[in-house]
Design a protein around this nucleic acid. Sequence first.
RNA 1: UCCGGCGUAGCUCAGUGGUAGAGCAUCGGACUGUUAAUCCGCUGGUCGUAGGUUCGAAUCCUACCGCCGGAG
Length: 395
Amino acid sequence: MTAVEPRTSPISFEVTHPAGVGTRARAGRLETPHGAIETPIFMPVGTNATVKALDPDDLREVGAQIILSNTYHLSIRPGHERIRELGGLHHFMGWDRPILTDSGGFQVVSLGRLREISEDGVRFRSHLDGALIDYTPEHAIAVQEALGSDIAVCLDQPVPPGSSTRREVADATARTQRWAERCLDAHARSDQALFGIIQGGLEPDLRAGSTAAIAALPFDGLCIGGLAGDESAAERRRALDVVVPLLEDDPRPRYLMGLGSPMDLLDAVDAGIDMFDSVLPARVARNATLWVPEGRLNMRNARFLDDPRPVQDGCPCRLCRSFSRAYLAHLLRADEMLGYRLATCHNLTFTLDFMATIRRAIRAGTFPQTMRQLRASRAGTNGADSRDEGRVKSE
RNA sequence: UCCGGCGUAGCUCAGUGGUAGAGCAUCGGACUGUUAAUCCGCUGGUCGUAGGUUCGAAUCCUACCGCCGGAG
């Protein structure tokens, strides 16, 4: 597929290390109005203009280069006009690095009971006060322009994972394409990039068609949506192996929406994805699951109450530098705020370090070997060996 | 000493004749473009003790033990 003639873009993406033999993994650099980021990249999620439990200093310390925030949620609270008047989202939340805003498309799925979809847009019933909210593609763009994120995203209609029929997938995918054109027409802010979203579910032909249709439009980047749901890793990989080859000559970044577990990230990088976001590491941390190279630790387990070791030996994060597993286990049981913060710091540090390791391997041309090693490590999984993490130091 | 109340899961308590429940705690699990410091599940009790009435008692009766309150 040939590249589209892009409009003047506020961002620039350069693939510094193209896909090599035996993998589609590539490394690059994305320049945005608030600085550059290195790909493949993981974006922590800060729905309400905050990555829960962390402040911007923590975010910098864990190595966040760019974060994601949410258009729908900010539009109803505190209100996008208010944020605009207060100087924009970066200033409002004290984060001067890049921000990508999700359009609210995901809320079409996550707030499934509170909305109705029509050709015009989505009518939400506010989960806060029940008010009716007419959420159109144009509105999603207007909100994002008010927020002033570096990268805006089109309103789309994700396909509910699992239970949808082929017909429903086809309809949602077609509508997402029509909405993509409306978003493009509505978007005016020249210092903000706009990404389009590819849908198509797990149907190869619908994925391919959506890829062609969205890639034909002058977006600054391409999102792949409707994955990171209930599908298996193999199903997801098959979908990516339909999409990415069609974008082989496309100069734009590829962003797989919603993916966050270490093994999932690894496989998707291998499939040729540049950008990711997910609440997973942060949410799981607040719920007491800590990711380590050998698997995961459920800090609610009684065995940690007397464990004087750090969560992860050698980890540079705020938690592992200063505190024991026993202390974290205590904090989380006591519902202490510090526990949530420290646990979140660790999992985000882990995830962002994991991505940094991947980037280094790609640049060094050793990604396939590194991938095998990382996959064998079972990082972040509930593998059979995760209970033996105390002995793994020797490897 | 008398009168009254109460003794049911680790804790706080429902359950007043038909073979025991809840919340929390414990123990374990899940979480992927956040309505999530959330959710799910498993353990766990000879219903203070001993008798009695009854086809059947946590539940009714008697005695005793313990705790609380009141009166002397």
